[in-house]
Amino acid sequence: MIIVHAKGNSQLGIGNLSRSYELIKYLSITKDVIGIFECDENIFRRYDINNIYRVNNLNEALELVTKYKSFIYISDLVSPKKELSSFLKENGAKQILHFNGINSGFEPDILFVTDGFDYEFFDNRFKIYRGFEYYIVGNEVIKNRKKKLKHIKSIKNILICFGGADPAFFTEYFAKNINDFKYNYKIVLGPAMPKNRKENILTIKKNNIEYIDSPKNMIELLLNSDLLITLGGMTTYEAMCLGVPASAVRWNYLEYIVKSFGEKNMITDLGNIDEAYENLLNLNLDNVNKVCKNAYNIIDGSALKNIEKVINSINGESL
């Protein structure tokens, strides 16, 4: 048995649920897998698979976990504690795998560090698999990946998406400050954005802005866009895999990621919010194409297979 546990009630955790959802779907083809999602009902409705259970908190999650005598546990939690890993070991976990950081004392057996940025990472307590080849994008993204990447000849249609909630409030900034006739803009209002906030944004009307509320198909939106503007999260990786040029605005929580992507020539770094719009209006098309091709080659859609290989290598894989 494999248990995948993710939490997405916080503004910054929705991507974890989506990543875990894709992993559960993929592993379920050949393995006995359940998912445990800590999230509210509204978010949970997005995940239509019958072997994922919704819980309200960690205690409810652990009640489910203890029903199984022997299992591989995969965590996609933000800042789990050492007490959790100790509990899991005492209650049937043969191996603990974890995505994200371990700065709160959590002790997995295997850690996935899903980027190839330049910072050093050493820890002798567990085995580390590191690199962009472990960053999960969904099967639907992979199915729609361009077989051959072609240079774009011009930029006209721009997709703005700052995640499920946009904790940076950059959506409002762009909606208010856009005053050009150079581009057509589609602005995504994410599913975790409060209703009153969406209503306020929708009062900002401009001829070249279209608002998309909680889109069901981001892939189609991305493929019909010449450029994505984001914070550097999950949608950025999806664009890279699809072969759609990605750019990002620096925001405190994800600023390092945006800067690092820029240094790796994987996105167009638009800088801080007060300079991002001007930088957008002065994009260099050759550079946009160059970074798009580089990112496309790096985010190649192999992560699910690579993670499955790691799971298969664990003793007791038949659990």
Rank of each mutant, 00 (worst) to 15 (best):
L17H: 11
R19W: 00
E22F: 02
L23P: 09
Y26L: 00
S28A: 14
K31Q: 04
D40A: 06
E41C: 00
R46C: 00
D48I: 14
D48G: 02
N50A: 02
N51C: 07
N51E: 05
Y53R: 12
V55C: 06
N59I: 06
Y68T: 05
S70M: 00
I72V: 13
I72Q: 11
Y73S: 08
K82C: 04
L84C: 03
K89F: 05
K89V: 02
N91A: 03
G92T: 01
H98S: 11
N100A: 09
G101M: 05
I102T: 15
F106Q: 06
P108N: 08
D109L: 01
F112M: 08
F112I: 15
F112N: 11
D118F: 03
F122T: 15
D123A: 07
R125V: 05
Y129R: 06
R130V: 03
F132D: 12
Y135R: 15
K143D: 08
N144Y: 03
R145M: 10
K146C: 09
K146A: 10
K156E: 07
G163C: 10
G163P: 01
K176M: 03
K176H: 03
N177H: 14
N179V: 09
F181E: 15
Y183A: 07
V188D: 07
V188T: 12
L189R: 10
G190F: 01
M193E: 03
K195G: 09
N196L: 08
N196D: 14
N196A: 13
I201L: 13
L202G: 13
T203R: 15
T203Y: 04
E210C: 08
I212T: 11
D213L: 01
S214Y: 06
K216W: 01
N217Y: 02
N217T: 10
E220L: 05
E220A: 11
L223P: 11
S225D: 07
L228Y: 01
L228C: 10
I229L: 12
G232L: 03
M234W: 04
E238L: 07
A239W: 08
M240R: 09
C241F: 04
S247Q: 05
A248P: 08
A248I: 11
R250S: 02
L254R: 13
Y256S: 13
V258D: 07
F261L: 11
F261R: 12
F261A: 09
N265R: 14
N272E: 15
E278P: 00
L283I: 13
N287A: 06
N287L: 10
K290S: 14
K290V: 05
A295E: 01
Y296F: 12
D300K: 14
D300C: 09
G301A: 09
G301L: 01
S302D: 03
K305L: 02
E308L: 04
V310A: 12
V310R: 14
I311F: 03
N312E: 15
S313Y: 05
G316K: 02
